[in-house]
């Protein structure tokens, strides 16, 4: 092969491969646009006010909504935050402020491990711990499953934002006579507050869409679920049940529910990311 041909070939490979990488990006980003576009168009079309105010209707009767599932999701998330946020946040404080020992290495390692556990396995855990002894599905069991799922991310994000607080702030507080705990409580945590709250919002948005751990913990319910001891409906579980059902009307409802769920999740994500990136720019 003559040198000039060789060069031509290399240049051609260069152009072809670079174009291909661009194409990959286009496909990946295009998928998102397609998913969002399809869901928004299809979901918004079948969305009505009844969706937010009515209970599901019996099979065969059209209309109805998912008011109970919306309230159900909110109740499950409340329990989840009561379980996941204190453990996750305080664990994060430990790692960021008192860490450095072998114990904190183990804690980090196990947190990563817990983060990698598939959500359905967490569901089995909540089932064996709460549902099996009680012999019935309950809101508590579903909330516990979601709460356990929140822990690893809560630990990680709290630790990260606490560590991002400059050491000089801590030293300043201590130089003024504050004890370590006073410095943490009155200076470090307030400085990291916004980041930590954003992290928790992202975390909630993530578990709000979880379906698998709820299937056999909070199960589902076509009526209101008073108290915390009964099976309860949740939006993602309703989407699943309605999507695999054979009824056309239920499919439309599943699209509406998908639309509502995705809108909530994406709004939280976009807001959180914008907040965080703004903060980063200021810090630079």
């Amino acid at each position: 092969m003559s040198p000039s041909l060789h060069l031509l070939r290399r240049k051609a490979v260069n152009i072809v491969m670079l174009t291909l990488t661009g194409l990959c990006t286009l496909i990946a980003a295009g998928t998102l646009v397609f998913i969002l576009g399809y869901l928004f168009i299809h979901g918004a079309k079948s969305l009505s006010w009844n969706f937010f105010t009515q209970l599901p209707t019996p099979v065969g009767e059209t209309g109805g909504g998912m008011a109970n599932a919306i309230v159900g999701s909110a109740k499950l998330l409340l329990i989840a935050s009561l379980v996941g946020v204190p453990i996750g946040f305080l664990g994060g404080v430990y790692l960021a402020e008192f860490g450095g020992s072998k114990f904190s290495f183990v804690v980090r390692y196990v947190t990563d491990l817990l983060n990698g556990v598939p959500s359905i396995v967490i569901g089995i855990f909540a089932y064996t711990v709460i549902v099996l002894p009680q012999r019935h599905f309950s809101t508590l069991a579903g909330g516990l499953a979601l709460g356990v799922m929140m822990i690893p991310i809560a630990v990680r994000s709290s630790e990260e934002f606490l560590r991002a607080v400059p050491v000089s702030l801590r030293e300043g507080a201590m130089a003024l006579g504050a004890s370590k705990s006073q410095a943490i409580l009155t200076v470090v945590i307030p400085a990291a507050k916004n980041g930590i709250i954003t992290g928790i919002m992202l975390n909630l948005a993530r578990v709000a869409g979880e379906t698998a751990p709820l299937l056999f913990t909070s199960f589902s319910n076509r009526y209101w679920s008073p108290g915390w001891e009964q099976p309860i409906a949740a939006l993602p579980v309703m989407i699943f049940t309605y999507a695999i059902s054979p009824y056309e009307d239920w499919h439309e409802q599943a699209w509406s529910a998908g639309f509502v769920l995705l809108t909530l999740v994406l709004m939280v994500n976009i807001a959180a990311r914008l907040l965080l990136s703004k903060r980063k720019h200021v810090a630079r």
Partner: peptide, 21 residues
């Protein structure tokens, strides 16, 4: 930013789009 939003989409939504699209 856009592509990372894809990671935030709940899996049941992917399932919904999987079945019907």
């Amino acid at each position: 930013f856009l592509i990372e939003l894809l990671a935030a989409v709940p899996s049941v939504i992917y399932g919904l789009l999987g079945i019907f699209v």
